[in-house]
């Protein structure tokens, strides 16, 4: 406990020890819940948009409780950009793959020629792939919006 306090004082973050400790404990669970909401969108309320916002909010929480530098240490800007582009490319790529496999664009049942699961199961699985793409893109954009708006584009300590 003393070490933690010394460290926060040295970094001059020291807003409140309670908030910082609870945020540090909560962040893994928030991220786990965000992943759960994304992958469980078939069977319960949820999906890519909602889960992506929850995942992004965990980084926003870190940036608010500590400062923007520490959230940038955990999730660098380059990694964020790569994740966001990957999400958008997954979505468009799945659609284009359907067209390449002989169906219409975004007609997931055409992917049956790759792995024969049956056209209906492929439609279900295609929706899952698309939701993962949407979740990654939304998370990356949410975090990026907060970083840029919170520090007015300077990417320093922020709010």
């Amino acid at each position: 406990m003393k070490l933690l306090r010394e460290r926060t004082e040295k970094q001059r973050l020291g807003e409140s020890l309670i908030i910082q400790t609870s945020v540090r404990l909560m962040v893994p669970f928030v991220q786990l819940f965000g992943l759960y909401v994304i992958v469980h969108g078939h069977y319960s309320p949820g999906g890519g948009f909602q889960g992506g916002v929850i995942l992004g909010s965990s980084f926003v929480m870190l940036a608010l409780a500590f400062d923007q530098k520490s959230s940038l240490r955990l999730m660098s800007e380059r990694a964020n950009a790569i994740l966001g582009n990957t999400g958008a490319i997954i979505f468009v790529g799945v659609g284009a793959l359907c067209a390449i496999c002989g169906g219409l664009f975004l007609d997931y049942s055409a992917l049956d020629v790759l792995i024969p699961l049956g056209p209906v199961e492929w439609r279900s699985f295609g929706i899952f792939l698309v939701e993962v793409g949407v979740g990654l893109a939304v998370m990356s954009i949410m975090v990026s919006l907060f970083w840029d708006l919170g520090s007015a584009g300077k990417m320093d300590e922020g709010l």
């Binding site: 969108g41 078939h42 069977y43 319960s44 309320p45 949820g46 999906g47 966001g84 999400g87 958008a88 979505f91 468009v92 659609g95 975004l106 997931y108 209906v120 199961e121 439609r123 279900s124 295609g126 929706i127 698309v130 939701e131 793409g133 949407v134 893109a137 939304v138 954009i141």
Partner: peptide
């Protein structure tokens, strides 16, 4: 589609173009 959640089924499959350009908009 074998997806029990109708909202997800419509969002991901029937209105796939809508969702795709949604992602493009937020990007």
């Amino acid at each position: 589609t074998h997806v029990p959640n109708l909202v997800t089924a419509i969002l991901g499959d029937y209105r796939g173009y809508d969702t795709m350009f949604e992602t493009v908009v937020i990007y």
